[in-house]
């Protein structure tokens, strides 16, 4: 069953066309991540789902109700903001229970639901604190707790982790994943961080310049990116792109395709070999990053951008050495002159 249907949604700010004909369906209970570079319109789309921005054209449907004209408060949603948006003049308990207070629920019910949410998030001891006396992670929890207390049909997250430091971000990411499993509510999550997208999502919507580039499960997008943008956006380090006429490239004719303009290969799918004529690409190591678990080589093969190779474990090959690279045919991504993936020799 679909929880949210977007039907040719458009958004204009005056003359600026921010979102162009967005059509999507989110299933009930699904965790959907909207991801894309800043300014791609993902936050605007989320705010339109929340009812904070009016829809310029198109239909926004929750279940089978068209909600275009419903106020945010009537949409049965909860939202976690990037800034947390905790009410500074209310203590944690009142922040959590504010939505119930507005709906004039009985004190006992308020108490019960508030302490239930506080229990889930470990906020029990902080109920009488004010937001200014909380750490970043605690504020984040309160913001999520506020949403849990609502027990809404749909959870919305607007870059909720981007104000946290790296360690806390991972911790809260896991927390959110657990929360989704526990509540089973439909969640729509906006981020520009592709790691968050990959780890949290049931399905990812990749957006760019007001349009949807591709929709799919994380692994689907990883293995079969539909175009150069998606291929380059997901994955870290980013996929390498090599022009078909790059002189350093030495592909056997079985691997080439006459309409391919660009070849893409992920850094983790490359085998380092001797720089002989069996190598598919040859270059000199410019920079090495040794992470312990992995070693990352930045190889100069004569193009503007280095060719990045990631090999597992510790590799002692030094800067300045010449190495060769080999790829498996199924790991090679081919793109035509419009940047669209050519999928003929792939199984997806």
């Amino acid at each position: 069953m679909t929880a949210i249907t977007l039907n040719s949604i458009n958004k204009r700010f005056g003359p600026v066309h921010v979102l162009k004909d967005i059509s999507l369906e989110f299933n009930k209970g699904e965790f959907v991540v909207l991801v894309g570079p800043s300014g791609c319109g993902k936050s605007t789309l989320l705010r339109m789902i929340a009812g904070l921005e009016p829809v310029s054209a198109g239909d926004m449907i929750f279940g089978d109700t068209r909600v275009n004209d419903l106020e945010p408060r009537d949409r049965d949603i909860a939202m976690v903001f990037q800034s947390y948006a905790l009410y500074p003049h209310m203590d944690v308990e009142r922040n959590l229970g504010f939505s119930l207070e507005l709906r004039k629920r009985a004190a006992a019910e308020k108490k019960e639901r508030t302490s239930h949410a506080a229990g889930i998030l470990g906020l029990d001891k902080l109920l009488d604190r004010f937001p200014r006396a909380l750490s970043g992670g605690q504020r984040q929890r309160v913001a999520m707790g506020r949403a849990i207390v609502r027990d809404p049909q749909i959870f919305l997250f607007d870059e909720p982790l981007s104000n946290l430091d790296a360690a806390l971000r991972i911790e809260m990411r896991i927390e959110i994943a657990k929360l989704h499993r526990r509540l089973g509510t439909t969640m729509v999550y906006v981020t520009h961080d592709q790691v968050e997208a990959m780890t949290l999502a049931d399905r990812i919507v990749v957006m760019n310049a007001g349009q949807v580039e591709q929709v799919g499960t994380p692994l689907d997008l990883y293995s079969n990116p539909a175009n150069l943008f998606v291929a380059g956006f997901l994955g870290s380090p980013k996929m390498n792109f090599v022009a078909y006429d790059d002189p350093a490239l030495n592909l056997p004719s079985a691997l080439t395709n006459p309409s391919a303009q660009t070849y893409g290969i992920r850094p983790e799918h490359i085998k380092v070999t001797a720089p002989d004529k069996n190598a598919h690409l040859v270059g000199t190591i410019d920079v090495v990053e040794r992470l312990g678990s992995d070693t990352i080589f930045y190889i100069n093969h004569g193009a503007d951008k280095p060719f990045v190779v990631r090999v597992p474990g510790i590799d002692r090959t030094a800067i300045g050495e010449k190495i060769g690279c080999q790829f498996q045919p199924e790991d090679l991504h081919l793109f035509d002159q419009d940047g669209q993936a050519i999928s003929e020799h792939k199984n997806g």
Binding site: M79, F81, S83, A85, F98, S99, R103, R146
Partner: peptide, 26 residues
């Protein structure tokens, strides 16, 4: 921050109650 009254509106306020209960005290 504008977020505050938006949060309030999602929590169940009209724009005017958000103004009265959240923005005004601040």
């Amino acid at each position: 921050p504008k977020d505050l009254e938006e949060a309030a509106m999602i929590d169940g306020c009209t724009r005017f109650t958000a103004l009265r209960k959240v923005i005004f005290p601040l």
